[in-house]
């Protein structure tokens, strides 16, 4: 059987315009275009458009870079900001040692601690639902107001859905979960590079607490309590980022 080249397709025509064809494929297409003058005219127009875009918009990058966009300036600002937040948060941070060998899953006394149960429930829910492709959330972000009212009714206290867009997090939605002590909620957010972060909420016990870091099988979590609600924030972010988001939740705007 003789080997025959694949027939010419729209993908070849597109790649011809962008000079993305292999030399062999390009030669084949040139021969084909000899018999198809209308297609050739069309592709010449498309190539002329590419030229026009490059000639007209290309120079937009030539303007001198303003000082504020210099990498050194950006670094300086980031350092100042991180120092401010880390300074405030450092005193309030405890580290919760969790690991396969640290008794996390063992049914010891510590495992009965309510906050640890919450963290475990939150991380488990995080791992189940961030991996979910079809139904990551039960109520989507479009129904944000409804989501807040609904979770508030089920948790028996007002639930504000935090707007974390200033921390580069987009709300995907949320769901109701069975928590260790009754109904719980999970809100899911996404970073610009599509990593998912969840905020687990349960009714609080009336007392506020410090930040508690936990990490279990590669899922870092930050837990804390306000008088109204108990929170666990889980996501593949550095600690300072989790703290920054936590501050954002309590200081909107």
């Amino acid at each position: 059987m003789t080997k025959r080249a694949r027939p010419v397709g729209e993908d070849d025509l597109t790649a011809y315009v962008d000079d993305a064809l292999s030399p062999e494929r390009r030669a084949l297409l040139e021969r084909w275009l000899d018999d198809h003058p209308e297609e050739r005219a069309r592709l010449e127009r498309d190539r002329a458009l590419n030229e026009r875009l490059r000639a007209t918009l290309g120079p937009l990058g030539d303007a001198p870079i303003p000082d504020r966009l210099r990498v050194e300036a950006i670094r300086r600002r980031l350092r100042q900001r991180d120092f401010g937040i880390a300074g405030r948060a450092a005193a309030a941070v405890l580290l919760l040692a969790i690991g396969a060998g640290a008794g996390w899953l063992a049914h010891d006394r510590l495992a009965q601690d309510p906050q640890r149960q919450e963290i475990r429930a939150a991380i488990t829910a995080h791992r189940i639902f961030v991996a979910e492709k079809l139904h990551p959330v039960e109520v989507t972000a479009e129904a944000r107001a409804h989501l807040g009212t609904w979770l508030g009714n089920r948790l028996g206290r007002p639930v504000d859905i935090p707007d974390l867009s200033a921390a580069w997090l987009t709300l995907l939605g949320g769901r109701l979960l069975p928590g260790p002590n009754g109904p719980a909620g999970q809100l899911m957010y996404e970073t610009p590079d599509r990593q998912r972060v969840t905020l687990y909420i349960e009714p609080g016990s009336g007392a506020a607490s410090a930040f508690l870091f936990a990490e279990f099988e590669g899922a870092p979590a930050l837990a804390w309590r306000s008088p109204q609600l108990s929170y666990v924030l889980t996501g593949p972010l550095p600690r300072d980022a989790l703290i920054r988001i936590a501050h954002r939740i309590h200081a909107p705007g």
């Binding site: 670094r75 600002r77 980031l78």
Partner: peptide, 18 residues
């Protein structure tokens, strides 16, 4: 546009480890 570039650079530098 420059605000967007600034956000991009801040984001890139602070998330370099990711």
């Amino acid at each position: 546009a420059d605000d967007l570039v600034q956000d991009t650079l801040e984001r890139a530098l602070s998330r370099w480890v990711l």
